[in-house]
Nucleic acid binder design. Structure first.
Lengths: 346, 346
DNA sequence: TTGAAAGCGCTAACAC
DNA sequence: GTGTTAGCGCTTTCAA
């Protein structure tokens, strides 16, 4: 039997012979209320399955205790493992958690602004996507926020908020340093899409820097970009590009894939060509996702401290909320995880 | 320069010397409004970065055009690839799309009810999680809804809505049939957690049915359950359980993993034990995620037609919205994808 | 401890 | 075409 679904606080009040204010107090655990009255009201609430209207509540309330995680690319495996971290840490700090997924093509700052008003947010954590640090909408958001692993334009302007992430240039350089140390000199790279000035661009720079420092001339022909018509950073893209790399007939002994998923695609392409990893070609990835441990051979990679990055993001917004000034960016280091996909030359 | 972020429709009206109604018409593309006035208003709106308050709007509006996708387990790789399908198809049909992530432990029907009121939803599509089909809250939701790939209790009561999915029993049986056809008789299974009456339970039943039909006695010792202290259906869980399977010293030639991710974990355990796939042990997965194609050897699996399932879900809610009656469940068949992880015996 | 009433920002019905 | 106004359902003073 279908009960009427449009019960309001008024209905409950009428049924209990009390005022709406009393009902409000009851459902919100307000201290100044008679236990008896409260119990009676809550019983009616349960009986009629009354659920307060969030819009009305948000509209009226001057503030909430909610911190939103606005993520661009919800499906990204790199992010998914962080959701729990954010949620747990936020709730441990007494905040409510709200996950909001934005599309790549929407105006992220505008959406953030809208959401901050709608939900009376206490703060915002941005995860993923590219946000123009000079966006005027960003200035409009009047709650504290932080960028977590949000790629920024290389050496571009700083956003009006703290950031949490890694130095893509430095860390990519360390990865390539390792390859060089292992004796490789003909190192190809599967970089981001052409013109990428964010994550992909930074890692490409690091790649070049490392080679140069090791006295290896950068061979532009060994630089391959992901295809624009396939989702970036996917195994599928890595597969397609690596096939081209192999078909090029160029001489190389190692491939630096700028993400682990890309490396997984590279694995398949190399295997399909009848070659062996790491015997014929060494492959490294980046990010340190769990799945890399289940590949054959295990992918050598740079592990981003995702857990710590999530925690630090929460710490920063908490500080921001309590008025702390001078909060600086948190730049994390990645950890070189040498597994089995690199062969030592000579 | 920070503009005041609390501009309301009133402020815009005052600045433009018009009534709030006119502003409302302008920002909502109402037909009956002078183009000049509209332009002037929209300019002011842009200038002051005014964004309508969604709560107020939702509170007032009698209906929206939004269909929500309520997903339990946002990070589940099986679901992530469906988001785009839902979004595209929904928008193609003129609906607005809203993705809502719910935690495993929340009361999904109650959250759905709340959301339906808050956003004045047109309909709801549930994806993932376990929903008690007899939940009273479900009856409370007064907008059409559909269960997509939501596991239900085996042979339990039917939910008060159409469902879209596969028959776990039948399809799992087909998978095991294939193993039997390939000459395997000692087949182990990595099933869901103990007592799973949903997806895992159904697939386990299919496994037993197949064996029985092939005149193979079910050896309970070969039935392994995923560990409760590790996330279900993950590679990590598959790894741990398969290690136990191998350590058991039992004789078996094939393993049926009830998900591809589980199979990836099994791969690693088998490899670690110095065994080869499929030479020593054959492994099959289930679901048909892309990543299975990047493993060595490629995982033989049953592919769920996720794309079609998403489309059908949208078709069903559309029908429900336009008052169609007699909409029956959509039961899809999976496709056996024979890749390279099974060896033919004899 | 409680009820009455104001009003959050917006849309829609009604008047002009 | 446009302004005015009545609520949408709720929280929160302010009195009682």
């Amino acid at each position: 039997m279908k009960t009427n679904s449009n019960i309001t606080i008024k209905d409950i009040a009428r049924m209990c012979n009390v005022g709406v204010g009393t009902v409000s107090r009851a459902i919100n655990d307000d201290p100044g209320i008679n236990e008896k009255t409260k119990e009676k009201i809550l019983e009616t609430v349960r009986k009629y399955r009354y659920v307060p209207n969030t819009s009305a509540r948000n509209l009226k309330m001057t503030e909430s205790n909610t911190i939103a995680l606005i993520v661009c690319g919800v499906g990204n495996v790199f992010f998914t493992s962080m959701y729990d971290d954010f949620q747990n840490e936020l709730e441990k700090n007494g905040y409510d958690f709200f996950l909001d997924s934005v599309d790549n093509d929407v105006n992220i700052p505008a959406e953030a602004f809208r959401l901050s008003k709608e939900k009376r947010l206490k703060a915002i954590i941005f995860l993923g996507g590219w946000i123009n640090p000079e966006s005027k909408s960003l200035l409009n958001i009047n709650v504290p926020f932080v960028f977590c692993t949000v790629s920024q334009t290389i050496e571009g302007p700083h956003p009006p908020c703290p950031t949490v992430g890694i130095n893509d240039i430095t860390e990519a350089k360390r990865m390539v340093d390792y390859l060089c140390d292992m004796g490789h000199r003909r190192i190809a790279i599967i970089a981001g899409v052409e013109g990428d000035m964010a994550v992909g661009g930074g890692r490409l720079i690091g790649y070049k820097q490392s080679l140069t420092e090791h006295g290896i001339e950068v061979d532009e022909r060994l630089i391959f970009h992901m295809k624009k018509d396939i989702d970036e950073f996917t195994a599928e893209n890595g597969y397609a590009v690596t096939q081209e790399l192999i078909a090029s007939g160029l001489d190389f002994t190692a491939v630096f894939c700028i993400s682990d998923l890309t490396a997984m695609g590279a694995y398949r392409a190399i295997y399909d060509a009848g070659l062996k990893i790491p015997d014929d070609i060494s492959v490294v990835g980046f990010d340190g996702i769990e799945l890399g441990d289940y590949m054959f051979p295990r992918i050598t990679t740079m592990v981003q401290p995702r857990h710590e990055m999530a925690l630090e993001s929460v710490r920063i917004v908490s500080g921001l909320i309590s008025g702390e000034e001078d909060i600086s960016d948190a730049v994390f280091e990645t950890e070189l995880l040498t597994r089995d996909s690199v062969r030592k030359l000579n």
